[in-house]
Amino acid sequence: MLFLGTNLAIIVVLSITLRILGVERILDEQGVGLNLNALLVFAAVFGFGGSFISLAISKWMAKKTMNVHVIEEPRNATEQWLLETVRRQARAAGIGMPEVGIYDSPDPNAFATGMSRNNALVAVSSGLMRSMSQGEVEAVLGHEVGHVANGDMVTLALIQGVVNTFVIFLARVLGHFVDRVVFKNEQGHGPAFWITTIVAEILLAILASIIVMWFSRQREFRADEAGAKLAGRDQMIGALESLARASGRPVDMPDQMAAFGIRGGVPQGIKRLFMTHPPIEERIMALKGMRG
């Protein structure tokens, strides 16, 4: 979510800056219409640019916003174990040794980020270390190493770049339509174009994030499989069950379709579209070979 928020902010700031500097005038075709070829190139450059800027600063931002303590020289046996476990898993996964960190939070959680398989960060919360057994923590670390090994951050950045391209392109086409058809502006672009474009960019980016969220959910299943391979299936299932207990949700739901929002009605179904992770129950079922 931090990556997506940063990406959206960069896109909006770039758009406003380019308008102020007058760069977007090159997209006009003799002052009477949009040059669609130039617009598509422009959208691709800045769409992928925004996505990869977000990716490039993702590790730095994660460290700053989460106040991550990166383990360079272990201060105790726990930190030593974390380093050795991640080093062993990284070697088994065929990736470079990630940075390993701990951040202070009562919530049991962990994350991985970074520009490449060999330049990543794996961090766990203090709450996770306190609430899980060593085997379960090992499974969580395997899950995060799996994200790195699968290249999930780069893949999501590419998908986000494609999405950004179409958002920028369609927002300007809509702005041009409103400016010409609704406000009858026949020369250049008036305020209606700029206002419509900004609003359309934000709304389209939110809607387009549904695609990114869907892909993110699929990658979670793959990361769970990686965690099961690196630490054992039972340990991975145990870690997910521990997360479910920590969130106050039952692990074994009497109606498995509850995870799909049927009980919750339409709002729950819509909410699911914007979820970065599948429901824990589905992930456990997948590991048990029961999914689908």
Rank of each mutant, 00 (worst) to 15 (best):
A120R: 15
P254A: 14
E136I: 00
E136N: 03
A228P: 14
I95E: 05
Q89R: 15
L40R: 15
A149F: 04
I20C: 04
I11Y: 00
I270W: 11
V173A: 04
H69Q: 13
R91W: 10
G94T: 15
A208K: 07
V178D: 01
R249Q: 15
A231F: 01
G49L: 09
H143V: 00
R233S: 11
Q268R: 13
K64S: 13
F260L: 11
L174G: 00
L207R: 06
G269V: 10
F215L: 02
G94D: 10
A77P: 10
G175W: 07
L240Y: 12
H277G: 03
E99W: 14
M213I: 00
V13Q: 05
P278I: 01
A208S: 04
G47W: 14
G49E: 02
V182L: 06
F166P: 05
I210D: 05
V140A: 02
I262D: 03
L141K: 07
R130H: 10
V266C: 10
L243V: 03
G238Y: 03
M97F: 13
T196R: 02
V182Q: 10
V137L: 03
I53H: 03
L207G: 08
A231D: 04
N7G: 00
R87H: 15
P279E: 02
N118Y: 05
R233H: 06
Q218E: 04
K64M: 08
G22V: 06
S209Q: 01
H277Y: 11
N7W: 09
F177A: 05
L2A: 06
M253S: 10
I280Y: 02
L4N: 05
L240P: 00
V154E: 09
E136H: 00
E225W: 13
G135Y: 06
S51K: 14
M97E: 10
V178W: 14
L141I: 05
G135H: 11
A157W: 02
E201Y: 11
L174S: 05
K59R: 14
I168V: 07
W194Q: 13
V212F: 06
V70W: 12
A259Q: 08
L4M: 02
K271Y: 12
D255W: 09
R88Q: 07
A244H: 08
K271C: 06
F177K: 12
V182T: 07
P74I: 12
L230N: 10
M253E: 13
F52R: 13
R75M: 12
A226S: 15
A157K: 07
F42V: 07
V23N: 12
A200N: 01
G135I: 12
T6Q: 07
F3N: 05
E281V: 02
G101E: 07
V154T: 04
G146N: 09
R130D: 03
I237N: 08
V86H: 10
D255S: 10
A56L: 09
L40F: 11
R172V: 04
A208C: 01
N164L: 08
M285H: 01
I53P: 00
L34H: 00
V68D: 11
F193D: 01
E241W: 11
